[in-house]
Nucleic acid binder design. Structure first.
Lengths: 305, 305
DNA sequence: TGTATAATGCTCAGTATGAGTAAAAGAGAG
DNA sequence: CTCTCTTTTACTCATACTGAGCATTATACA
């Protein structure tokens, strides 16, 4: 018997922020929304990143700026019981854009429709206690031997008891929900029926996991690299900057302290011009490229608690 | 013409620390040392990580504990002018072990023999000013148009002028040296002659780049996850912990403050027992697993300056 | 002219960090 | 048995950073 072929796919989590909402680009050809994706052309694509850019251009009509490799997924899917014709490896990327009109067939999805438990800007979302925790507890108690370990993991990742909420653990939380069978795709993959629907848009294949990976990575990166600015126009008010950061981090920030942080860190510089915003007019700022030469790790020290 | 096959290889950067020296496991079948690596069996290996563990067991006789995916390399090598039979993708992993005797054919290499400019424990290593900077400057001036940008990148990454040294930028530094043609493999890949040898052990294929990726990632992770303890026995003195961290971070640390940090962060707990170390006997400590439940991101806030 | 709204400025206590001095507990030399 | 060397451990202190709050300014609109 000959070894099966291997196919390599590139997946792109393309992120933009508008209206205080972080968004992910989805293509809607099939039923469950999917992120732009396509096979690597082993002969034609010189680099993985170029292949990705090509796909995004073709499928979404977007030219992306900042691109970063996220993770490579290559496990045999539990669902594929029959030996597949080819082993599928997928390399996922994170891309950031200032929001633009995508091509027909592509649309911006609200990140927090996909992962509703991640938005803590107006306090801890009720979905955690209402929908998640009861089923997680059930899962913890379902196995006598693993019960303790499971309870600890749940507590740690969902900020139960004394543990503070850690915004960065997006992927760990998703994986816990998957393991516990609480997200719909766990049952699709497992082949079994879905006992009860749970909040959050299900996506094609493992795309929701990839989106979770991306959000976690982005939240982390925010604290030590000036990546937010990739999502903003050339000039912006400090409150727009703050709203963008809050949208990604999923937590509210103290306005005055945010301002202090951002100015003292030398991340931005005023342009002198002003813009009206419904209250006192705000000064327009721009990103100071030079921070990167002055500070080793310029970012926004966000308190993820 | 049919599309070429794709092969997926797993590469492992296996790290241990002993004698104040961070070490990387190398296999020495060919001439330039290589890291353990082998093709994914698309039918037999259920997950990429299991495939990796299998390889490490086979090639190095080691059972690794902590494993983390690093990066996926898939660019067409410049060197391979003739179309290869298969497109090579390689997924690199970082693994941490308490040092053990590797199988014959494998050996521990000193991390700083491979990347000599990264060790700043006894101050800025002279190799930077002696061997690197002159050639980097040459490279900056070699292109009129890119000169400014290149100078800025070099200054930023090698801590020239006012920029502080940033220990984490290991990969950026390697890539700069590669681009500038200062590391030997840049010429092997390019096919041209190597004008002048430069310090640092050359490795097979792109393995030195992978090692650089691993060091950077590990240095970063140190600050927000308790990964050091994967490299240590169950109990250890605080100074051994400090030496291990210093070995990885490549910078000296203030002993008293390190102690304060580590104790106040709740990362360790005393065991009561003592051990003699040449001076006053030291208490033995163990890692406090519970930190992970108390603090969202327990790590060692290392000043990389 | 007042009121709502957002932007900006400033204070203050608590905590963390960098740097240093000093004491304690052994080993080994003489 | 005492002195010295080495390492571990305990404190101190000035400075920087953080979280939280109060206060003021500049506009739009009723």
């Amino acid at each position: 018997m000959s070894a099966p072929r291997i196919t390599v796919a590139l997946d792109a989590v393309i992120v933009a922020v508008s209206d205080r909402t972080p968004r992910v680009l989805t293509v809607i050809d099939g039923d469950p929304p999917a992120i732009p994706s396509g096979p690597l052309d082993p002969a034609g694509d010189a680099t993985l990143e170029l292949a990705l850019r090509r796909y995004v251009r073709e499928q979404a009509g977007l030219e992306v700026g900042y691109v970063e490799q996220l993770y490579t997924f290559g496990d045999l899917r539990r669902g594929s019981a029959v030996a597949p014709a080819a082993r599928a490896i997928s390399v996922a990327y994170l891309a950031l854009v200032e929001q633009a009109q995508p091509a027909p067939g592509a649309a911006w999805a609200n990140w927090y429709d996909i992962l509703p438990w991640e938005d803590h800007r107006s306090g801890r979302p009720s979905v955690i206690e209402d929908a998640l925790v009861p089923r997680l507890r059930q899962w913890c108690e379902a196995d006598d031997h693993l019960s303790g370990e499971r309870t600890a993991r749940v507590g740690l990742n969902f900020g139960l008891e004394k543990t503070p909420w850690d915004g960065i653990r997006v992927l760990e939380r998703y994986e816990l929900l998957y393991e516990a069978g609480i997200v719909a795709e766990a049952h699709i993959d497992g082949g079994g029926p879905d006992p009860a629907p749970v909040p959050g848009t299900t996506m094609a294949a493992d795309h929701r996991r990839i989106v979770a990976t991306a959000l976690g990575r982005l939240r982390g990166k925010l604290t030590y690299r000036p990546v937010v600015f990739e999502l903003l126009p050339g000039t912006f008010t400090l409150s727009r900057l703050q709203r963008t950061v809050e949208a990604l981090a999923g937590v509210p920030l103290h306005t005055q302290n945010f301002r202090r942080l951002v100015e003292r860190a030398g991340l931005v510089e005023g342009t002198g011009t002003q813009t009206s915003t419904g209250g006192r007019p705000a000064e327009l700022f721009r990103f100071r490229e030079d921070v990167q030469l002055e500070r080793p790790r310029p970012g926004l020290g966000i308190p993820y608690r």
